[in-house]
Each structure stands twice: as structure tokens, then as C-alpha cells.
Simulated scan of single mutants.
Amino acid sequence: MTKNRGLATASKSGITAAAARLAGASASGKPCAPVRDLIGRDDLAAAYAVQAALTERRLAGGARITGRKIGLTSEAVQRQLGVDRPDFGVLFDDMAYADGGMIPAGRILQPRVEAEIAFVLRADLGDGPLDTAQVRDSIEYGVAALEICGSRIADWDISLGDTVADNASAGAYVLGTHRRTLDATEPADVVMSMGVNGKEVSVGTGAACLGDPVEAVAWLARTARDLGDPLRAGQVVLSGALGPMQEVSPGDTVTATLSGFGAVTVGFSRKEDS
């Protein structure tokens, strides 16, 4: 995995220590203290260096990258977490769950769910202007998706640097089965409703995601290329929340319906069911 994260002002020992702290939380299943004491609140170069170190650990352990997630694209989610700009993380094969499937209890630390549009790429996004037109042409199809965010940091006490280091708080994702091309559905016009156990808890639109989910992917494409690890054909891109995220508990069932893209559902098992 090529890496060019820029010049981090945090020390190498701080970056290494932050990665170890977050890896320990993942291994133990016990959330840890924030890592901003080691890398700073807003040193994005340092935070992405921590993320890259954790990614290398996952790859060395046999995990396979399936795509990327864009986080913090919705003003509602930014307000929830006290940040003011998007970020991104890496998706791995063991994060994917089937539509209608069940996520085991304890699999995701401090889970919160958000509904979004996921895109699958048919072309690499490493060359050219990487503008909205090019990105639209490079998308094979979109589907309704649920992202299960999970923070390894206790009580979701995060700064931007904390969440970036923690792989943008990625936990798991679920893709719907109703594939739509962008000729058939305009992502910016999508209307979303998400419910937990049949009760609506989040609403939003495609325009809540940086004005247009495709523009969010264009932002990611340019950022990923600048950092030396461009998006590739076949990868999944979770484009960002269309509305507020919602905490979930064991036994909950979450369903999101996105106009034009259909519905997507996931359950969370209780310990006795795992």
C-alpha cells in the first residue's frame, strides 16, 4: 500500500504509541483514551500516519482492502462530533455484512449507525482532473448502505485527529441489493429515512452529503491521489451520511430506505445469541 501522508509534526514515537493504543483497544474490546495527547488534535498528517500504520498491521494479518469510507460529510454528524471537515478511512473484507444479516454482539465498539449511498467503481481514479464528471463516469453503480461506525476511543471523546487515526471510526458496513446506475437515479435528490426497531430515528437527503454524494467521492479521489493511494476499480466507496447517526444496542434492527435505491437492513445480536 503506497503511502505519502505528508510531513507530520508529531514525533515518530508518538505516532507509534498512538497506533499501539488503538490496536490494543481493538484487540481487548475495551475502548482506550484519546490519542490526541500523542499526535495533537488537528495534525492530519500525523493522524493519517497512525491510520496507515494500523492498516499495515491489518494487511500483515491477512485482511484485504475492499474500499474506502468518507466520514463527516453531513453537517448533522459534524455537529454531533464537534468537527468541521470530512475525513476518510479504509474498508476491509471482514467489515462487510450481508443485507439482512446479523452483527455479533461486541463486534463493533460503541456502535452507531448511519445511512448513506455506497458506490462501486468501474475505473481507477488515479489520473485526470478527478472532477465530478470524471467520477460520475467512473462509478459502475450505487446501492443503499448502512455504515456501522465504531470508536475505539472511550465515550466517543474524539477530536478530528483522534477519529482520523482510528480509521475514521470505521466498524462495519452493509450494502443493499438494489443496484442503480447514475443514469437511473440522481444521488443528490435521494430522500433517506432510517429506523431502529420500526421507529424512525434519522432522516436526510443526498444533498446533505457535501451537497452531492458524487462530489464527496470526487473529494476523496483527489485526496487519496494526493496522499499516494488512489481509488481503484472494483472498490466500494461509502460516500457519507445523509442524516444523523444513531446509537444502537444488542437486539436492535436497523432499516434504511433511500428513494431510488430501495432498503437495507442489519440486526445486532444479543450476547446470548452470539
Rank of each mutant, 00 (worst) to 15 (best):
C32Y: 07
A53L: 09
F261L: 15
E215K: 13
A25T: 02
I139S: 07
L160M: 15
I39V: 08
V237D: 04
L175M: 03
L125T: 07
P213E: 02
R179F: 08
G204D: 08
E147D: 13
R58E: 15
A207V: 12
C209E: 00
G171L: 03
Q110N: 09
L146R: 06
E215S: 13
G126I: 08
P31D: 07
V35A: 08
D43V: 04
I39F: 04
G262V: 05
L44R: 11
G267V: 00
C149T: 11
D183S: 15
D155S: 13
G176K: 10
L220H: 12
T132H: 09
L125A: 09
E272L: 07
S202L: 02
G128S: 13
G251Y: 03
P86R: 12
G228T: 06
G176Q: 09
D87I: 02
S239E: 05
R79F: 02
R112W: 01
A218M: 10
R122S: 14
A19Q: 12
C149Q: 11
G6A: 03
R58N: 15
G206I: 04
A10F: 04
G24H: 14
V196I: 15
I139E: 07
L38H: 07
L130Y: 06
E200G: 02
A241M: 13
G195S: 10
G61P: 07
A45M: 05
L146P: 06
S28F: 13
S202H: 02
M102H: 02
G61V: 02
R225V: 12
V135A: 04
T163I: 12
A184G: 10
A170F: 00
E75H: 13
G29Q: 03
R122F: 05
L130I: 03
A18E: 01
V35E: 07
S269D: 08
T163D: 02
M95W: 00
Y97W: 07
G198H: 10
T66W: 08
M1Q: 14
V254I: 13
R58Q: 15
L220I: 12
I117D: 01
L242N: 03
K271T: 03
P129R: 13
A23F: 04
G14S: 09
G14C: 08
I158G: 08
A115K: 03
S138L: 06
L109D: 00
C32S: 13
R270V: 01
A33Y: 11
G24P: 14
G161Y: 08
P104Q: 03
V143R: 11
G71L: 09
G6Q: 04
C209D: 00
Q110R: 07
R68S: 12
A145H: 01
D162I: 06
G150C: 01
Y97F: 10
G251A: 07
Q110F: 02
Y141T: 02
T181H: 05
V191A: 15
V196N: 15
P34N: 00
